[in-house]
């Protein structure tokens, strides 16, 4: 087989095989990991790491991971707030307008009456609404063979 016919990858393997012993890339010892022992970091290495901190913070990988970790609780809170249906809650009464513009007691009575009219209207409207849904269904039970 001519060398031109060999594709790039195979070429690389062949080149690697032909290299002299000392030029061959060293295979990592798999036992290295297990041989590691825990030791307290030296003060100098800590100092170097602290000095490198600005570089670590600028690292795009670090930024992506950090922002993702930050986003998760925010999204969770947002969904929790959406899930709790804030619209169904009765809004707290704001006392400010009453203080600024106090209405006479007669208007309060009128407001109360108007609210009760609205509530009674809803009650009357609802009287009809669910009745149709309560009727029993028509089922075909004429099963004969």
């Amino acid at each position: 087989m001519k060398s031109q016919e060999i594709n790039t990858m195979e070429g690389e393997i062949l080149t690697e095989e032909n290299l002299p012993e000392d030029e061959k890339p060293k295979v990592k010892n798999p036992k290295l990991k297990t041989q590691r022992k825990f030791s307290l970091p030296s003060f100098n290495s800590l100092l170097i790491k602290i000095e490198n901190l600005p570089n670590i913070l600028k690292n795009p990988r670090f930024i992506i991971i950090f922002s993702l970790i930050l986003i998760i609780p925010f999204i969770y809170i947002a969904f929790t707030l959406l899930g709790s249906k804030p619209t169904s809650q009765t809004p707290a009464e704001n006392p400010a307008p009453e203080i600024l513009n106090p209405s006479p007691p007669i208007d309060k009575k009128l407001q109360d009456i108007e609210n009760k009219i609205k509530s009674l209207q809803t009650e009357v409207d609802l009287l009809d609404a669910n009745l149709v849904e309560l009727a029993l269904p028509e089922v075909d039970l004429n099963i004969k063979f």
Partner: peptide, 9 residues
């Protein structure tokens, strides 16, 4: 989380 919250709501 989105699915579980939507479903529970």
């Amino acid at each position: 989380l989105a699915f579980s919250i939507k479903h529970s709501a």
